[in-house]
Design a protein around this nucleic acid. Sequence first.
RNA 1: GUGGCUGUAGCUCAGUUGGCCAGAGCAUCGCGUUGUGGUCGCGAGGGUCGCGGGUUCGAGCCCCGUCAGCCACCCCA
Length: 437
Amino acid sequence: MKFKAVKGTRDFYPDVMRLRNYIVDAWRRVSLRNGFEEYDAPIFEYLDLFTIKSGDEIAEQLFHFTDRGGRRLAIRPEITPSLARMVAAKINTLPRPIKWFSVPRLCRAENPQKGRLREFFQWNVDIIGVDGIQADVECIFTAVDFLREVKLTADDACVRIGCRPLTVASLEMAGMPEDKIEAALALLDKRPKVTAEVFIKLATAAGLDEKQLAAACALQDCKSIKEIQELMDGRENIAGILDDLRELMKRLEQMGIGDYCQLDMSIVRGLAYYTGVVYEVFDRKQSLRAVAGGGRYDKLLEIVGGPAASATGFGMGDVVLGILLDEKGKLPEDVLAGMLDFFVIDGEDGTFEKVLEVVAALRTRGYAADYSFKRQNIGKQMREANRRGARLAMIIKKEQQGDQPEEFTASLKNLLTGEQRDGISITDFLNQPTLIP
RNA sequence: GUGGCUGUAGCUCAGUUGGCCAGAGCAUCGCGUUGUGGUCGCGAGGGUCGCGGGUUCGAGCCCCGUCAGCCACCCCA
């Protein structure tokens, strides 16, 4: 074969496409029932839209090109800058609250590895223009609502919640210079993933004071708000932050998802622009990278050249999620195999035209119905019905009584149980929905 | 971008110290006597052994390169 799928990309054959659709459909369903509206943006944007937020180095991680008009463009590696751009353009006319979601296809020019490809889908859920923690609660609830929707229990996955301002405060209290805080946060984000020795090495390499870092490390190890409070010793400037965090956890509990959520101050997130609560969804065993991540990013709209507007939200990729669902055996039967409601069979000569009528009628009524292209014996057609994953096989027969015009009847066989009913009048069957199993 | 491991049919793999025509299971398709699937039996299709070069009388097996996959680093929006 001369051509294959490009490095880090996937071909979606029907069996894989079923999985993708299962995930994307659930994302949409859950978003809508949580009151979010869908938006989308172009698949490529001006390169600058992405570099302004993340720096020029990011260009190396992007698929970018120059068009014939000399415009420097890039395929989107994320949709948040586009969201910021769209919201900024109409900020004064958009109805509030702005609760939006999207399922963009994204590309990043990174080296593929487990759970990470060059092309993927990512569910984005954001609330813009709401300052209070209730917006964060909404996003976290939506994430958990999805986990439940795809049958991931609190034993399978959890949301670990951290708080950027507290970490920053602990660094400030320890005397960390302001210009070093960003680097310190980046390093703290890595702490759970590296050994103590490596952490110290990285710290000295970044020119960070160990003692100052230690204060934040102590905070990271706190398991409860009470512990944090004791550690931070009731400093005034953090009282409000602590109250917010306490209230956030309480509301998550009230909304019935407390078992999925745990405070974890080691969650910092790599990105510079987070300004409040941050969180990541992990599989409990934590054998995979994060399934989702997000938090509050109140400055981003301004950075992208828009008005000042607070924002919070998260992203969830399809790749890690797909691996997790597969590993946990959570994929429904009809995702693993195709599903058909009816497979209609011509049971004897002269019934094929009736088959077409019945198939058409079933389809019109919303059932997935199909039939064999080959006119062959019932056994072969039954086998095809089975292969196609049909729930029911319907065999059309002809009955003639005396001089009466011939009448068609059907035998209906449940292919899962083997149960069969015969002599069903086709007219009655199609007219009475109750007869349809 | 860097490093390690791997690369034989759609999938999972066998393939003896390099030696005649490259194998199995699963999957796919066909057949199993005018007829009710899944099980079972028989059969077929499908591979220039990732690709390119080299060593050799001879390479799936050895060497080099390249591409891809996996894993780790960088990064993680």
